[in-house]
C-alpha cells in the first residue's frame, strides 16, 4: 500500500513510504481512510459517547474521572448541573461545595464533550439522564465488546435498568422509579430485584468471557436462558 491512495488512520504508521499496521486486529476501510482496530485496548473516547466513570480526585473547579482510558478524564465544574437546576456562573461557594456534590469513589454517567489534544476526554453531565449513580452494581468489560447503539440506557423487561458505557463500564441497577432524581442512599431494593441484578451481572460477565458483543438484545436472551438455573448456582 502506498500513501497516494490511502490515508493513515489509527493503528497504522508510515515507514519508508509504506503503510504498516502497528497493532494486531481488524482492518477497517472507510473510503480512503485505513484503520486497524485492535482486538482489545483501552477506551478511546469519541465525542458523544456515553460513559460510566469513577471519580478519582476532586480538584480546582474540576473532577478527575477514571474511564478506563489511557489518561484520566476531566469533568469541569461548569459541565455539571447545579443542584436545584439553576443556570448561573459558578461561584467560589460552588467550588467549596464540590466535594459534597461528587467525591472520590462516586460513580457517574456522563457524555464525552470533547477530546483534548493529548487524548484526554472532557465529560459533561448537563442533561437529566446523566449524573451520580447510587444503588447498583458495576461490571467492567473490555470496551471493544460494547456495541455502539442509538441509546445506551436501557430499562430491560426483566425488571432492571442498565447503562452500557462505551468505555466498558456497565452499571446495573434496579428499575428506576418515577422520582429517580431523589435517589437517596437509603435502601429500598427488594430481594427479588437484587436477584435480577445479580443474574444480569453474571450473564454479562459470561458474555464478556466469551468475547461476545454486549447490547440489550444479547443480554436479554442470555438472561432468559439463565432463568433455568438458580442465581446462587451460577459459575461466578
Amino acid at each position: 500500500m502506498t500513501i497516494f491512495h490511502s490515508c493513515r488512520g489509527h493503528g497504522t504508521y508510515l515507514q519508508d513510504n509504506k503503510l504498516k499496521a502497528s497493532v494486531a486486529g481488524f482492518v477497517e476501510k472507510v473510503g480512503k481512510l485505513i484503520c486497524v482496530k485492535p482486538v482489545k485496548s483501552r477506551y478511546n473516547g469519541e465525542v458523544g459517547d456515553v460513559v460510566v466513570g469513577i471519580i478519582t480526585e476532586v480538584g480546582q473547579r474540576r473532577w478527575k474521572v477514571d474511564t478506563y482510558s489511557r489518561l484520566d478524564s476531566l469533568l469541569m465544574l461548569s459541565a455539571v448541573n447545579l443542584p436545584g437546576g439553576e443556570l448561573r456562573r459558578r461561584s467560589e461557594k460552588d467550588e467549596l461545595m464540590m466535594r459534597q456534590h461528587l467525591t472520590e469513589g462516586d460513580l457517574i454517567s456522563a457524555e464525552v464533550q470533547s477530546v483534548h489534544g493529548d487524548g484526554s476526554l472532557a465529560l459533561h453531565t448537563r442533561s437529566l439522564k446523566y449524573g451520580k449513580l447510587i444503588q447498583g452494581t458495576l461490571v467492567t468489560v473490555a470496551p471493544a465488546l460494547i456495541k455502539r447503539c442509538k441509546t445506551h440506557f436501557h430499562n430491560l423487561e426483566c425488571g432492571a435498568s442498565i447503562i452500557l458505557g462505551n468505555n466498558g463500564y456497565i452499571w446495573i441497577s434496579p428499575l428506576l422509579k418515577e422520582d429517580a432524581e431523589n435517589q437517596t442512599t437509603k435502601s429500598d431494593t427488594s430481594t427479588l430485584e437484587r436477584e435480577i441484578v445479580a443474574r444480569l451481572r453474571n450473564c454479562i460477565m459470561a458474555l464478556a468471557e466469551r468475547q461476545m458483543l454486549l447490547y440489550d438484545t444479547s443480554i436479554t436472551y442470555t438472561y432468559e436462558a439463565s432463568l433455568n438455573y438458580q442465581v446462587s448456582q451460577h459459575k461466578k
Binding site: G11, Q15, K20, S22, P38, S41
Partner: peptide, 9 residues
Amino acid sequence: LMDAGVPMK
C-alpha cells in the same frame, strides 16, 4: 503487548 493493543513498530 499485542494482546493489550499497544501499537508497536
